[in-house]
């Protein structure tokens, strides 16, 4: 059973060599190629998915940025319009105030003018009435010149300003 058989060794080497050769050419190399192709396929798919993901992320970032910008802009517009409105409001109020002040002033002036005019008229009338009354009272006893002097005195005593103030009040 253990007797040397060198011929069998030769046969072994021949069959083994042929088998390895055939396996390498027909099985190992095509299989490796197929496996590599499949790996490449999967890698490509993964790369594509990764690229798509990156693209989607980029788009999302872009949309976010755009949205933020738009929001900022609208805020700005709102702010600006609010400022404009405030400004206009203040202007209108100021104008109204000044106008009312002007009207008030005019009214004051008008009143003063009227008062003055009324006083002037009153003064004249008082003088006349006084002259009339004095004439009636003292026609007989008084000379023309006396009359004039008396009237002047009476007029001087008459505090026109005071009267005016009282009349005003």
């Amino acid at each position: 059973m253990l007797a040397p058989e060198p011929g069998l060794m030769i046969w072994t080497l021949i069959t083994f060599g042929v088998a390895v050769l055939v396996l390498t050419v027909f099985a190992f190399k095509p299989l490796q190629k197929a496996l590599d192709a499949r790996r490449q396929n999967i890698q490509d798919g993964m790369d594509a998915a990764e690229a798509a993901r990156a693209e989607a992320l980029r788009l999302l970032e872009e949309y976010k940025a755009t949205l933020a910008k738009v929001r900022g802009e609208s805020e700005e517009i709102l702010e600006r319009s609010r400022a404009t409105a405030d400004h206009a409001k203040a202007e209108i109020i100021a104008e109204a105030k000044s106008q009312s002040e002007r009207i008030l002033e005019e009214a004051h002036e008008q009143i003063e003018r009227d008062t003055r005019a009324a006083l002037r008229a009153l003064k004249g009338q008082i003088a006349e009435l006084t002259a009339l009354a004095t004439t009636k009272v003292a026609t007989s006893s008084l000379t023309e010149s006396d009359q004039r002097r008396l009237i002047e005195e009476a007029l001087a005593e008459l505090d026109v300003e005071k009267l005016g103030v009282e009349g005003d009040g």
Binding site: E5, G7, W11, T15, A19, V22, A27, P30, A34
Partner: peptide, 30 residues
């Protein structure tokens, strides 16, 4: 080197034949 074909050689042939058939089947199945 006595190259007579004995039982072991036949088994070696069968082994090689089976491997060759499988190699061809693999190539076809690809």
């Amino acid at each position: 080197f006595d190259l007579s074909v004995n039982k072991a050689v036949v088994y070696l042939w069968i082994t090689a034949a089976v491997l060759i058939v499988f190699a061809l089947l693999v190539r076809r199945s690809l």
